[in-house]
Write a protein that binds this DNA or RNA. Structure first.
Length: 323
RNA sequence: GCUGGGGUGGCAGAGCGGCCAAUUGCACAAGACUGUAAAUCUUGCGCCCGAAAGGGCUACGGGGGUUCGAAUCCCUCCCCCAGCA
């Protein structure tokens, strides 16, 4: 591959209208979509993850969906109950991206999982160290101060560099210990080349960020939730539980699958489910906004983001013009 | 009308003489996070000054009292709920 290739990246919080925009642009500019969403990768999580809107025309194929005549990759990559990580996304997305380019189409990455997008276009340093699930299960039983002590033993530098928040965060502590242990124990540098994908230098990324004031997004998200509840979201989760998907696994997915499965397990009533879910979705939107805000500010000067406030009226025309 | 329970911060709900500007959860806000990222985690959240320590003001339905000291005890008024009429 030589020459200059362009890839469009559209990111934004939940309910910012990323997917609609992406489909529109794909049709206009002969593009194909790669979804960057950590929950849409699961087969069977459709309504809860909001893969498509209910008035879209959908055909499911092996390896991709066709939504309103646009090819969408990134759905149904793994089965429910399995583990999927940023590294898996990286492998999938970079190969798919190349395939789209080879087919002379415009790749459009769309998603709300900032970490995945960052991994794809900027790379992730320690990504060569695979997760050791067995070790994690063992460490999960320990409290944070014990974990911190442990990290202090295996990698004092790393331990001391952690901030207050990370020191209280079991997941981050465990991952830090995991990295320290694995790289110390068996000099596994050989492992690295296997999964590491650095950003391809020939690709020029055109970044589009979508945002809006909190209240605006909250309202849209609440409405979208109501629509999905009317269109079988509960039944989708019930079916998963009936097929022996572990409630713990669903709980760990967060948001829709967490609260609906708790409701179906009679831990809470319907109204509680809706209220807590809305609250968590709002928090999630806030977290996404913080993440994307920082992401944008830390981008190298060569990569600028075009940011659009979707609560303003003519944002879509402006985007089409700039492209 | 009588009897019993109750009125606490945006909401739910603890506190029942000093350690209370008031536990906790929710909501809201800001932030962290390089292989679980829709997860996980931190901080703030009456008002004013302060980077902080801290200080000042206003607060636990209204009013009045008891006390060195009251969200907490007493009186009274208003309102809500349950039972009896």
């Amino acid at each position: 591959m030589t020459g200059k290739y362009i890839m469009l990246v559209i990111y934004g919080p939940t309910a910012s209208g990323k997917t609609d925009l992406a489909i529109k642009l794909a049709r206009k500019f002969n593009g194909e979509i790669i979804s960057a969403d950590s929950r849409q990768v699961y087969k069977g999580l459709d309504i809860g993850t909001g893969k498509v809107s209910f008035d879209s025309k959908v055909e499911k194929h092996k390896g991709f969906w066709i939504v309103d005549d646009v090819k969408v990759y990134g759905f149904d990559l793994v089965k429910v109950g399995e583990q999927f990580t940023a590294a898996d996304f990286l492998t999938f997305a970079s190969t798919t991206m190349i395939r789209i380019i080879v087919a002379k189409k415009l790749p459009i990455v769309v998603g709300g999982t900032g970490f995945y997008i960052k991994a794809l276009i900027e790379g992730i340093g320690s990504i060569g160290v695979k997760p050791d699930w067995q070790l994690r299960r063992k460490l999960e039983k320990l409290d944070t101060s014990t974990l911190y002590q442990k990290l202090l033993e295996v990698n004092p530098t790393r331990a001391r560099s952690m901030n207050q928040s990370d020191r209280a965060n079991p997941r981050r502590l465990i991952r830090a210990i995991e990295i320290a242990l694995l790289s110390q124990k068996s000099e596994v540098k050989s492992q690295k080349s296997e999964t590491t994908h650095y950003p391809l230098p020939t690709i020029h990324y055109l970044l589009i960020g979508l945002t809006a004031p909190n209240d605006f997004l909250y309202q849209r998200a609440d409405y979208w939730l109501d629509v999905r509840l009317e269109h079988g979201m509960i039944e989708e989760v019930r079916a998963l539980l009936d097929h022996k998907v572990s409630p713990k696994w669903l709980d760990d997915l967060g948001l829709e699958y967490r609260w609906v499965s708790r409701y179906l397990k009679n831990k809470i009533d319907y109204n509680q489910m809706v209220e807590r879910l809305k609250g968590d979705i709002h928090s999630f939107i806030r977290r996404q906004k913080t993440w994307f805000h920082k992401f944008k500010n830390n981008l190298p000067a060569s990569r600028q983001v075009k940011l659009y406030d979707i609560s303003k009226s003519n944002w879509q025309e402006q985007i089409e013009k700039t492209i």
